[in-house]
Design a protein around this nucleic acid. Sequence first.
DNA 1: CAGTGTGAATTCTTTCACAGCG
DNA 2: CGCTGTGAAAGAATTCACACTG
Lengths: 268, 268
Amino acid sequence: MATGRTHRPATRSRGIPEATVARLPLYLRALTALSERSVPTVSSEELATAAGVNSAKLRKDFSYLGSYGTRGVGYDVEYLVYQISRELGLTQDWPVVIVGIGNLGAALANYGGFASRGFRVAALIDADPAMAGKPVAGIAVQHTDELEKIIDDNGVSIGVIATPAGAAQQVCDRLVAAGITSILNFAPTVLSVPDGVDVRKVDLSIELQILAFHEQRKAGEDSTGHEEGADAVPQPPVAPHRTAAGSPGADSSGRQGPDGDVPAVMPA
Amino acid sequence: MATGRTHRPATRSRGIPEATVARLPLYLRALTALSERSVPTVSSEELATAAGVNSAKLRKDFSYLGSYGTRGVGYDVEYLVYQISRELGLTQDWPVVIVGIGNLGAALANYGGFASRGFRVAALIDADPAMAGKPVAGIAVQHTDELEKIIDDNGVSIGVIATPAGAAQQVCDRLVAAGITSILNFAPTVLSVPDGVDVRKVDLSIELQILAFHEQRKAGEDSTGHEEGADAVPQPPVAPHRTAAGSPGADSSGRQGPDGDVPAVMPA
DNA sequence: CAGTGTGAATTCTTTCACAGCG
DNA sequence: CGCTGTGAAAGAATTCACACTG
């Protein structure tokens, strides 16, 4: 993805597959739970079950990190927790800023998971002047004007965008300009960023749509094909003339303000 | 994944790759935006850019759905919107229930993206009796006791879990028993469900951890290896004796109630 | 001998590149 | 002529299965 090529020729086999990286947090969670119950060791089988993967995959994943297990025994829980934490970079403290303190932003600010893993909410930022100074999750919200200063002062390199879609790119640009190099984007937009900046997106409605796809399959197990409701226009593949005005049928934002302060899925 | 094997022998080539399914919502979003701007057609190149993928991938994806484009021209926006919507099952109405109306649950209830894509919030459910009756996003919260009845009455097949991790499996079991077959899980736990039930998870802290991993790599571009802070114990791979009591160093839930009403990342 | 670590086989995904159609 | 649709090649990720070790 990032054109930077990231190719790392020397120093050992420093190339952990993305798919593996994405699972490390899962393992870490399972391990932390075991650690809290003072379980000293686990087998790949047990840990895999706890993490919701299969043991072959888990062992292969760990093999990219090194040989941290003991044959015939399993893995030392504490040791693995440490190794994975270190690999993920969680042994250091990561200050993050959350931009856009609407419903979602507030939820994130309150989210225990952030604080408990080396992430520290350095600031909450919102464009609404009325929000400024209001405490959310024990932290006073600051105005967008302060954005650059906050990031600079706190050495923040990770930003979370929880603004409406319409504002996301703009916020993103400012974050990047201010020195942020990793962004977690909750707004339903594709952000464009320069090389060297990482973006991960979480889109709540996309997940639901994927579920709907599979759900639909289940329902139509036998009765394949043809829908029921006759109110949508199948639209022959040849006529580009947009049928009715605007886009009445399928859409109709019904409830909900058009594009309030919550990341609405269909912004502009 | 699901052991049901889901193998579909007959009726055409009904096998859209998961990776493709996961991107359809992305295309749909881009297309809807175009549709709202009354753009009649797009090329694979344009649409790909808008969706944040490359055009070869997009064309391949679409080829699984059928031949909906026109050579030398591109795709008819309205027509594609319809086809993808239908493929995703969004031409029908999906009632969903959200269980756990804490910060996150409330954010989800307010999330415009749900309502705007064939998803209808049929009910908000919370275990706290004090929440019952309180309106959130214009809908009165109902008590967990009503769960089965609500699902049955509304023919709900998709459930969203936004409870603390500790309650998630229990809620999940009840949802499944009540007939839910698709679950979107925001609680940081692995849910176990019977065959035939789909679970998708969204874990906010996992995404951050993945970002941290890459961020760390950037920082240590040259200065590979060895950490700085000497406060963590590297723990030799041979000594299973848990060093200090409990797990002081790396963890320390610091802020936040121990396992309040927000999905804390480290529950039990 | 239980359970890790890992080459090899398999399957899934992405990318290439170009024939063919409107 | 431009752009889709798609076989074929390349690249990842997953799974298998077993040698090897504590």
